[in-house]
Design a protein around this nucleic acid. Structure first.
Length: 469
DNA sequence: CGGTTTTGACCCGCGC
DNA sequence: GCGCGGGTCAAAACCG
């Protein structure tokens, strides 16, 4: 990065921090040149020049004479300009250097901090990229053995196109094929290159078969007063149903960030505790996402990939090594925070973030402004996502996991974070994608390892949460 | 006026 | 075959 990074840093930094060092006295120009009235802004401009030294050479060119500032010799030139007189003696210059040095150093320190934050952003993007890459690899790898204990594939409709496996984690076509859904499927196939295209016909057929029999879902339980959690995506509600056994209606949303995006989500309040919002994601976005949405998308994608890649539980209730793998990976000291249910019809990963007093989430202020997100340290958020519990029973996925006392505070804060802070999903993405892509070491290191592995993943993106409620 | 939400109807899979 | 429940559609209503 080097100079470019520095320039980027300054360019990205929209914070109104005073550029005290750059407030230079006007040279050879007095206020008399600007008649009073209507020119105050101009006058202000000229009397207090704020220059972005590094981002653009124009500034240097446009700077008043004597302000020819270069990166290598910021101090000297600046001081010369501040002195306003090139004839100033060296002693005075030295004196002023010493006076302004602390301020310069402080500024440098701030720049370094911002540099660190930018590194964090980069790490975050890298994490998401890695998760997607692993997802892609998982999709492209022909799976030699069919996963046992899963229901046989439903009979395929002849007109049903191949699964949109290139875009969905679980490229399972929707069951319904006679209600106009085919339009969507055809469009999907036309719009997105078929990742299975390189496979031989038999392999492709097998993949389609397997895809059709598996429809992984990632469910997030979180306390929230809001109707839906803010995950950075745009959603359109397309249905609502009363589900059996729950007085609260279940709402159906689909992603509207792209016309053919296959991602859907269901939102329903928990019957036992209506302060708990259960959001179930299905599918993977087939379009670019904003950072905040990317985080959740990576999370769900990675979780679903994990679920389908063979590290999923067996449905016969046998405890699985993969369960403890995931549990240890995400939280070595975990008890129960997430659930995997591999039972029919859909294998589901449930991330439970509801532990702790409901008031914790309720007390959280409204979603933070982007600038506030900017300063949220991710490691805090990461540690809040702190547990996994594995179960192969379908009911276990919906049953509230056992509380974990000591983590209650942080966990409730996590629930609040995920409902109010789209950036929290960054931590989820980091955790899960690190499991997917990390390998054995991270199993033992848990989130700490995940974060280390990702080089200080830092929350920083500007969250333009465009969630439609 | 275009996008979103609402809501009743419809379709499909599954269990009996 | 029938009923039930989940999921989706699509027209109308709503909203900015």
């Amino acid at each position: 990065m080097g100079d470019n990074k520095l320039g980027q840093l300054l360019a990205l930094d929209a914070s109104p921090r005073p550029l005290a060092l750059l407030h230079l006295p006007p040279r050879g120009m007095s206020a008399d040149h600007h008649p009073a009235g209507g020119s105050s802004s101009l006058r202000r401009q000229r009397s207090s020049v704020e220059v972005d030294f590094f981002s653009d050479d124009k500034h240097k060119e446009g700077a008043p004479p004597g302000l020819a500032i270069n990166k290598e010799d910021l101090t000297i030139n600046l001081l010369a300009a501040a002195a306003g007189d090139s004839s100033i003696n060296k002693e005075d210059t030295k004196k002023m250097v010493q006076q302004q040095l602390p301020a310069l150093q402080a500024e440098l320190g701030r720049m370094n901090e911002e540099n660190q934050r930018l590194r964090g952003m980069l790490a975050q993007v890298t994490t998401s990229y890695q998760a997607l890459q692993m997802h892609l690899l998982a999709l492209m790898q022909p799976q030699p053995q069919p996963i046992p204990h899963l229901p046989p594939p439903p009979p395929r409709q002849p007109e049903e196109p191949a699964s949109n496996s290139s875009t969905e984690v679980v490229g399972s076509p929707r069951r319904s094929s006679s209600t106009g859904n085919n339009k969507d499927h055809l469009q999907l196939q036309a719009d997105s290159p078929d990742a299975a295209g390189w496979l031989p016909a038999e392999g492709r057929q097998q993949q389609q078969q397997e895809a059709s029999m598996r429809k992984a879902r990632v469910s997030v339980r979180a306390r929230s007063e809001a109707p839906i959690i803010a995950d950075g995506c745009q959603w359109r509600k397309y249905g609502q149903k009363m589900a059996k056994g729950n007085p609260c209606p279940r709402a159906y949303y689909r992603c509207t960030m792209a016309s053919a995006c296959p991602v859907r989500k269901q939102v329903q309040r928990c019957a036992e505790d209506r302060s708990i919002l259960i959001t179930t994601y299905e599918g993977t976005h087939n379009h670019p996402l904003p950072p905040a949405a990317m985080a959740m998308a990576s999370t769900t994608s990675a979780a679903a990939s994990m679920l389908l890649s063979g590290s999923m539980p067996s449905a016969d209730g046998t405890p699985m090594t993969s369960n403890s793998f995931l549990a240890r990976a995400v939280l070595p000291c975990s008890s129960s925070m997430a659930t995997i249910s591999a039972s029919a019809p859909f294998p589901t990963v449930t991330l439970d973030l509801t532990h702790g007093p409901p008031s914790a989430a309720a007390a959280r202020p409204a979603p933070l402004a982007p600038t506030q997100f900017h300063h949220l340290p991710l490691y805090n958020q990461s540690t809040k996502f702190s547990g996994l519990h594995m179960s192969s029973s379908p009911s276990a996925a919906d049953a509230p996991p056992i509380g974990i006392g000591g983590l209650a505070d942080t966990v409730s804060a996590a629930a609040a974070a995920i409902t109010a802070d789209p950036n929290f999903t960054v931590s989820l993405a980091a955790a899960i994608s690190s499991i997917i892509g990390g390998g054995g070491q991270q199993q033992l290191h848990g989130l700490q390892g995940a974060n280390n592995n990702n080089n200080n993943v830092t929350s920083s993106s500007n969250n333009t949460n465009s969630e439609t409620q």
